[in-house]
């Protein structure tokens, strides 16, 4: 148990947790009892049913989605989790090979190590619309809190590196060449801990369960498994069969007419087409990890 530096309540530490959240006053603090800066949260602006309706509309834009998806896909369950991120506002001068670049950037660092390698790792947040953290709100929304195990010092280092990368990319885009930027003098480096509500939902289609993940504040779809329509799979299987048959026929033709190069290249290329058709026929779902806004 660790005492909250603001209200004095005893707060239980979760395994691995390095930044604790007081469930009484919402203060975020380290194990040594230091406050980590403003603690904000994104609000839940979409119900799970609403997000499922939006997801179905979004999924229609994915080419492989079955045509009866809208009517046949049924909602199964949804978990709401508030994931922690460090959001920094960084401004200052950055040294480049050509001189000094003055820039202001906003960077997001996941404060939960289990987000690494998941679609949530690259989430970029804006501080716009974020309000002070309320544990009561999390409970009322039926959500749970993911433990923050990336401390502020580690996040600070990652934030400077991320800011340098952002400025490097910005300059690279503008100058059309590599222009590595290194932070020289940072006038502003403000850190905030932001808990972001994320839905992880299960739905059913054709007797199978699929998953999608969406931002509950702005409805961005962050990850989606979408079934592939059965008739496409059947057509792909027919295409595969025809391609392999043609490969065998062309091989025989090449040998019969003494065309060795033809007998080698054409059957191989046709077998390649057959393999691709077979791959399409075997895929029962497509996985999309792109943001809604980019579709």
């Amino acid at each position: 148990m660790v005492a909250c530096p603001y209200c004095g309540s005893e707060v239980e530490q979760q395994p691995g947790e390095t930044v604790l959240t007081c469930p009484y006053c919402g203060t975020a603090f380290t194990l040594s009892g230091g406050e980590v800066g403003e603690h904000l949260m994104g609000r839940v602006n979409y119900t799970s049913q609403h997000i499922f309706e939006l997801f179905k509309l979004w999924a229609l834009r994915i080419p492989e989605t079955p045509n009866d998806f809208n009517s046949k896909a049924s909602f199964s369950s949804c978990d709401l989790t508030f994931y922690p991120y460090w959001v920094y506002e960084i401004a200052g001068s950055f040294r480049t090979a050509g001189g000094v670049e003055v820039a202001a950037v906003e960077v997001t660092i996941p404060a939960c190590s289990r987000l690494r390698g998941t679609p949530l790792e690259k989430l970029k947040l804006s501080l716009s619309g974020k309000v002070y953290y309320s544990h009561r709100y999390v409970a009322q929304a039926g959500g749970k809190l993911a433990a923050a195990d990336v401390g502020p010092e580690e996040a600070d280092r990652a934030a400077v590196a991320a800011a340098e990368l952002t400025v490097t990319e910005r300059l690279g885009r503008r100058l059309k060449r590599s222009a590595e930027a290194r932070a020289e003098k940072l006038e502003k480096m403000e850190r905030k801990l932001v808990h972001v509500p994320v839905y992880s939902c299960l739905y059913e289609y054709g007797g199978r369960a699929y998953r999608f993940v969406a931002d509950a504040s702005d409805s961005r779809i962050l990850y989606a498994e979408i079934p592939v329509e059965a008739r496409f799979r059947a057509a792909a299987l027919a295409g595969a069969g025809s391609s392999f048959a043609l490969a065998a026929a062309s091989f025989a033709l090449g040998l019969a007419f003494s065309l060795p190069a033809f007998a080698l290249v054409t059957p191989l290329a046709l077998a390649g087409v057959g393999a691709y058709c077979l791959y399409k026929a075997s895929a029962r779902e497509v996985v999309v990890k792109e943001f809604f806004a980019k579709s």
Partner: peptide, 26 residues
């Protein structure tokens, strides 16, 4: 479906053409 079949048949023709081009070139 006709467009799909035409595209797949096109890929078969392109495969056959590639083999014939190499044969002729050799």
């Amino acid at each position: 479906n006709a467009e799909r079949a035409a595209r797949l048949a096109g890929s078969w023709l392109a495969a056959a053409g590639s083999g014939l081009v190499i044969e002729a070139a050799l």
